[in-house]
Design a binder for these strands. Structure first.
Lengths: 208, 208
DNA sequence: GTCTATATCATGATAGAC
DNA sequence: GTCTATCATGATATAGAC
């Protein structure tokens, strides 16, 4: 049931995604979406009854796109540290490709958190599995003891926040030098992996 | 030149802050601000010519409030690790008191980054001093070598992101249990301090 | 300074021809 | 399915009385 490429519906979805992501639900204008899709405003209402419904379609698509990479990694049987490294790599890669997603999600969820309910339930998002794996590694003495939730929060924060706060990072740290900013983002994965490992991995000589 | 308390202007500023922070510039309605201030819509335009100007007044106030705590700490002559701990404590304390500031700032800066220009220049925000101090501590072998910008990004990310992403944290990690969520935030300062120290402080036995 | 009433305009949504 | 034309609403902003 894939939507035919270059169909009108496809064009609308592409244009709506672009406009909603950059302007947000409240800042977006149906006229602008229509212009970018190269069609008429009335057609938007023909395909999607209202702005609200069009937005929901886009929002679901982006959430689905941003969240599920993790589940595949969690399911593998590699050691926890390798999994953490893979999650960091996967997220930074995704965010370099789509740097405006974090700002968009934060903006819209602070505006109306209710949308998260249905989607999380629908996609079966559940972090308990990864928390359990962390706890096991802690009990084995492979990594230090800390609440898995805090460890997860630390890792995810370091990955996502610099993208969500892009304008601040860009201006304050790099005086809007985009080349330098991109270089900074490209380094993030290695930096975060090393930082996390230094913080949590228990070195053997400390055990002896 | 302090504004008299309970004056009309004071009431407007208080109401506008509350509404703008929770709804954002685009989501806020002048009617709602007037209602919350207990005055008439026309009065808003009498005191502040437009919604735009009223918003700028509030935005400047919040930026001024959110940023400058750091400068006082940076200026002291304590060792770098102590300073980092103080910055973390100061920020988490501020954010627990005002948890909606990060979401507000991220939303508005992604909408229109130009406002940052004037304000940062006006308040003389400059992180170079703290970066220099970090670099000195690295060269002395007190903390590991890494780019100061990345170290700063890591620390700030772990402090701010869980508040900016409050709805996600609340729902996914705590199933909207507000008591548990507050407990989590209360633990953040200690968790982050330990995490950062474990990651960057070079233990003496490793030097020998 | 504060209010009521109104002007002005932009936007989401619909009607109806083709 | 796609378009033009139009409606209905709600928002910012202003005029003018008190």
């Amino acid at each position: 049931m894939e939507i035919k490429k270059d169909s009108t519906e496809e064009k609308i979805l592409g244009a709506a995604k672009s406009v909603f992501v950059s302007k947000g639900m409240e800042g977006a204008r149906m006229q602008e979406i229509a212009d970018e899709a190269g069609i008429n405003k009335a057609l938007l209402h023909y395909y999607f009854r209202s702005k609200e419904r069009l937005f929901e379609a886009i929002f679901a698509e982006i959430i689905k796109f941003a969240f599920p990479k993790v589940t595949r990694i969690v399911g593998s049987d590699e050691p926890i540290v390798a999994k953490i490294e893979q999650v960091i790599d996967a997220y930074i890669e995704l965010l370099i490709e789509h740097p405006f997603i974090p700002g968009f999600i934060i903006k819209e969820l602070n505006r109306d958190p209710s949308g998260l309910f249905k989607l999380v339930v629908k996609f079966g998002l559940n972090p308990q599995a990864i928390f359990d794996q962390m706890q096991i590694a802690m009990d084995r003495g492979e990594i230090i003891q800390m609440q898995p939730r805090h460890l997860a929060a630390n890792i995810i924060s370091m990955c996502i926040f610099p993208f969500a706060a892009r304008p601040i990072i860009s201006f304050i740290l790099f005086k809007d030098d985009q080349k330098a900013l991109e270089a900074f983002y490209a380094e993030r994965a290695e930096v975060i992996k090393k930082f996390v490992i230094d913080a949590i991995v228990i070195k053997k000589k400390e055990i002896e």
